[in-house]
Design a protein around this nucleic acid. Structure first.
Lengths: 230, 230
DNA sequence: AAGTGGTCTAGACCACGTC
DNA sequence: ACGTGGTCTAGACCACTTT
């Protein structure tokens, strides 16, 4: 209904006061009870509004100390990390996929430490993802078959590791990193571009209860970008 | 207190049931009233827990249709976009800054369209940010002085545009894009690196009530990355 | 010790979307 | 039409943090 006493209305009004400097960065704002009285609503409703703004980084709240306008509102950008195939299809293109190599081996220390485990044999997959038959992304992935035994018997030339894992091995924690890497000779070969190009790269590690499931480096073709609204 | 009836407890229990396939992707889960009865708590509490999981993308909720386990849980990664100086200082380094050029001119159509405005003169700033005296990031920024007139009289060799704008021109909407760009000859000169390197690049536009305030391209030195937990 | 936000309750009404 | 989630209320107790 978005009436004058909805939490969204209160949120917007508080936002307005901050933007228009009625409440300045670093200053305390009235407590929830006072605001509830002012807006003529329950304290719960004010709480909901202020909590939303605190989640956005606009306010800082501490018990007893009260609520303050953040000194430096840190913009938070939220990105959806979709399954590659869905992302390609959302662009109106046809998703293709090819397994380049599937072997067993021991990852280097960097991968091991991010997976939080001792050196041991793991499944190593290298694959190429296509959009409308053109190269789109090259993926280098390690899977710990000690943690996900079923992965050892999967034919990853038919289903991508990404999709299989999403359906068969949910994680509890993970880490993701965005970076820019030179394409390099090997990827240039598959991408059909210069090795000096810059590729947007996503490095991701997922774990269950602290045990690493998979570590993957996804290098996108030059020109790829991720965007979101602020 | 995190007792057995806290919303966090319910959230974790629901999460567990999804992860352990008691509730499978695509399936409906009991409605809020039933869950409240099961957990012995108020419906409000269940609502809070389920809403949090829906925000995370694990559940999909629709009035009347009920709550379902998401078919493809889309991981959402949230990044903090800090002020450069704070980011450098958080790394334990000393932040430096130099204005390379400040002129007036008309931006190209790409910039204009993302700022949602007609061709007109704007302030154009190019600057170099340093960490412990080493190059860190190069910034190319347009500021529409029609929208933020005060910016015309600021000495941007003393305060970075980023910091000045944060303090003096809050925005209502914005767009941010992460990409990988080749360093190129000009930046290579300032960075003291090869022009063939790959630079992590952030392109950001902010607006107030639809009117573009500023458009900025920040190219980071090779090796820079952004990361977050999932 | 005391003030402030964090949360829970029990009940209510409503908006939305499916049937 | 009606079931489900979305939200609001008034009150209560608690946790945390500062004084």
């Amino acid at each position: 209904m978005n009436a004058s006493n909805s939490w969204q209305t209160i949120r917007d009004e508080v936002k307005r006061r901050v933007h228009e400097r009625e409440w300045t960065p670093g200053a305390s704002i009235p407590n929830e009870s006072d605001l509830a009285r002012e807006f003529g609503c329950a304290r719960t409703t004010v709480n909901r509004a202020l909590r939303a703004l605190a989640d956005d980084g606009l306010l800082e709240r501490r018990r007893k100390a009260g609520t303050r306008v953040a000194l430096h509102p840190v913009p938070k950008a939220t990105f959806d990390i979709p399954i590659i195939r869905h992302e390609i299809e959302a662009l109106g293109q046809r998703a293709g996929y090819g397994l380049l190599s599937a072997r067993t081996g021991t990852p280097d220390v960097g991968v091991l430490s991010s997976m939080n485990c001792e050196p041991r044999d793991m499944l190593h997959l290298v694959s190429l993802h296509l959009a409308d038959d053109r190269p789109f992304m090259m993926e280098d992935r390690w899977i710990d078959t000690t943690i996900v035994p079923a992965a050892a018997n999967v034919d990853f030339s038919k289903i991508s590791a990404n999709e299989w894992l999403v359906l068969n091995a949910s994680y509890t924690e993970g880490h993701i990193e965005f970076s820019a890497e030179a394409i390099g000779d090997e990827r240039a070969l598959h991408f059909g571009c210069s090795p000096h190009g810059a590729g947007f790269t996503i490095t991701r590690t997922t774990r269950v209860d602290g045990k690493g499931i998979t570590h993957v480096v996804q290098a996108f073709v030059p020109g790829y970008s991720m965007s979101t609204r602020l």
